[in-house]
Design a protein around this nucleic acid. Structure first.
Lengths: 232, 232
DNA sequence: CGCTGTATTGACAACGTTCAACGGTTGTGG
DNA sequence: CCACAACCGTTGAACGTTGTCAATACAGCG
């Protein structure tokens, strides 16, 4: 089964890579469907493959030694994930769970070093991809350290709507099932507090909730709430 | 002024790089002394150079739009820093302040892409360096999200003692001046709470404080406090 | 010798967690 | 097809950790 170059050519990751090099990469890849609820890999298990998400959404989470869960990030189409080698690890540091019917390309992890060294462009783009994530992580640290819960939740919801917002009626629908618990694990709080905050926002017409659903109705006011000290 | 290869050859960053390649890199580098209190670069200013710390310590911090400060990381000898290009940025995302008399190698930022593409080994080591930082950032997010303040401070102090601990008498001295405020900015709390916690620890013989000083006297019990739910 | 930055400590308030109970929705197995 | 379990969400009340405000003290430095 040959994979079509058109599938990936438009992705930023391959933006300035020669067609020939892309073909070589694809020739080693296998595509795989992932059903909702399936784990692509589990925290602590040996890192056998790395991946590129073509469709759908995943969430990558870690469990603490005390058993609490934290969502490390959402994986969106076009993202590399499971690149443990780049972090100098032999196991996966987190669990990747599918939350929306997905398709991913898979490469054996052995090929990572090889591909990187043969393909300086890939090295650079992979590095900037990780750099991007590092900045997001710092943003999150900044927010958790200095902002109160409501502002953090506002920021998280805004980010979700940017990364996974689909126009719908009079708002932006978060394009995958997401629970209060998920939002809590993204922002370092409890589902109870998230529930209260979303209820309050719904009362003010900022969002519309629902079981595993979230519709942002007023991005502007939500952003004001996220950025200004008080008001909105 | 020619820089000696012996200065850097032992660093992990250059571990598996050919002597010739190292020489080429050094030929473009300039070494620079940095005095305590000096900023190597400022948040938001154009990223003109990237650096390798040879001696001393720096702290990299960011200020939030609301004016609060967060310490992103400490820079230890052997670390690359200011590699904005790797994060796809043209400005520095944080401010690097010298806290302990330092010496760093400096390269013009223009050379980054060039050096990376010519030198796959450098690309790989730089990527793993960033990957390392990403993991640390995730660790911090996990801690801030799930642990109470005392545990977070314990973890932070343990990390400091690993990265910058010098044997002294009956403990490990943090090898640079560090304030309660610094520890607060590392752990997402206030200097008041840190002060209270350190006072309590001092009473139990875990640490010895002092103005901009910190001596860890009982690593084992501190680790127990950091890792076990309750006790110690 | 006074000023600035650092540290300590107390009192108090509050934000958010914890505990608890309940209602609704989805999906499954009898 | 219905009953029930599992999951998700909401909300109230009480509690406590931790931030805020305030006052004091001390060290280093010009």
């Amino acid at each position: 089964m040959k994979l079509d170059i058109g599938l990936v050519k438009h992705l930023p990751l391959f933006a300035d890579m020669a067609d020939g090099d892309i073909e070589v990469m694809l020739s080693h890849a296998v595509s795989r469907r992932i059903a909702v609820g399936d784990a692509v890999f589990d925290q602590g298990s040996p890192a056998s493959h790395f991946f590129l998400l073509l469709n759908g959404r995943l969430k990558v989470s870690q469990v603490t030694p005390q058993g609490e869960q934290v969502i490390v990030r959402m994986v969106n189409p076009g993202d590399l994930f499971g690149i443990a080698k780049a972090l100098q690890r032999t196991d996966y540091p987190g669990t990747a769970l599918c939350v929306s019917e997905a398709v991913a390309l898979c490469w054996p992890m052995d090929l990572w070093s090889q591909m990187i060294e043969q393909n300086p462009r890939l090295a650079v783009t992979a590095m900037t991809a990780i750099g991007q994530r590092l900045q997001e992580a710092h943003t999150r640290i900044r927010e958790i350290s200095t902002e109160d819960v409501e502002r953090r939740v506002a920021h998280a919801v805004l980010r979700l709507s940017e990364q996974a917002g689909r126009e719908e009626g009079d708002g932006l629908r978060i394009d995958f099932p997401i629970t209060r618990q998920d939002i809590a694990e993204l922002t370092g709080t409890t589902l109870h507090t998230v529930s209260r905050i979303l209820s309050a926002w719904e009362g003010r017409g900022l969002v519309t909730g629902g079981r595993q659903k979230l519709l942002v109705r007023d991005v502007a006011r939500l952003r004001a709430l996220a950025e200004n000290e008080k008001s909105a």
